[in-house]
């Protein structure tokens, strides 16, 4: 951990994420304005003391909407990656500890899921399940499965032949017990690394879905949705597309930096061992 603390990029990542988490936390206690109240008299205002980031096409305060949106972004990021990680871990572990047909089938299925370009799978699921927050969470979660399945598959394969597993097997320990008691604790650090690296990606997909009108639905606010709504006004009032984009970059960059730094330090530790 001390090496991590010395890593400037890691510190930067922590700062960026803290900013967004802070914004989110504050939004529960204080908002400059009601994010959903429309005020047609004060449409498309430039930033001022009253409205720090100005107002949108309905006269809603942009800062407040950005603050509220951070809740969705963080929530969707965390929950969808958790879903993907849990299911992926499970599938990967099963595939690695079984033989022959089951292993082959599971891995082909993961390969198949992997062939869906980023947003495609999510779009397909949303088309079937319908638009909205929960369906977006589910869709992104399913999209995350293959990454975690591949990772846990290779990690478990590495660990499987290690002596302690063999020893546990020779005592007649059940497979579930081996997986939960012995395997999971050893592979968890790598999973957590992937977890932090995936959150940024999940938030990106959420914003893309919302941008396409398939994620968070109006009148609720989401950065992607705000950008989508700004499209009509970009020519007359371009500033509308700036703040949500910047906060989105900050969030994704922050999580990516943390993920990369943790990953690097793990690689180094493994190399040193």
């Amino acid at each position: 951990m001390s090496r991590l603390r010395n890593n400037k990029l890691f510190v930067l990542g922590i700062i960026l994420v803290s900013m967004v988490v802070g914004l989110c936390a504050v939004s529960f206690f204080y908002l400059p304005h009601d994010p959903n109240v429309m005020n047609t008299k004060e449409r498309l205002l430039s930033p001022s003391v009253e409205y720090l980031l100005g107002t949108d096409q309905f006269g809603r305060d942009i800062l407040s909407r950005i603050m509220v949106s951070s809740r969705y972004a963080l929530f969707i990021g965390l929950v969808s990656v958790s879903i993907g990680a849990a299911i992926g871990l499970f599938i990967g572990a099963i595939a690695a500890t079984s033989k022959g047909i089951i292993q082959g089938l599971l891995m082909r299925m993961i390969d198949g899921l992997m062939a869906f370009p980023g947003i495609l799978l999510a779009m397909m699921l949303v088309a079937v399940l319908g638009e909205g927050l929960w369906n977006a969470v589910l869709a992104i979660g399913i999209f995350m499965i293959p990454v975690f399945a591949r990772l846990s598959y290779s990690l478990v394969l590495d660990q499987k032949d290690e002596l302690y597993i063999k020893a546990a097997q020779s005592y007649g320990t059940s497979r579930t017990r081996i997986i939960f008691k012995h395997l999971l604790p050893t592979i968890m650090p790598r999973i957590i690394t992937q977890f932090s690296a995936s959150i940024g990606n999940a938030i990106l997909i959420e914003s893309s879905l919302s941008f396409l009108g398939l994620g968070v639905q109006p009148p609720d606010a989401s950065w992607g949705l705000m950008l989508s709504e700004s499209r009509q006004y970009t020519l007359t009032y371009p500033f509308l597309s700036v703040p949500p984009g910047i906060i989105l970059v900050i969030t994704v960059l922050g999580f990516n930096l943390i993920g990369d730094a943790v990953n690097d330090s793990m690689v180094k530790r493994r190399a040193a061992a």
Binding site: L9, S208, F211, L227, T234, L235, G245, V252, L253
Partner: peptide, 23 residues
């Protein structure tokens, strides 16, 4: 590289459209 990974493509497209095409 890091920035490229973090900037959403649709936002970039939007900005490019505003500045280079419309602007």
């Amino acid at each position: 590289m890091q920035l490229g990974d973090a900037v959403p493509q649709f936002w970039l497209a939007l900005l490019f459209l505003v500045f280079f095409a419309a602007g």
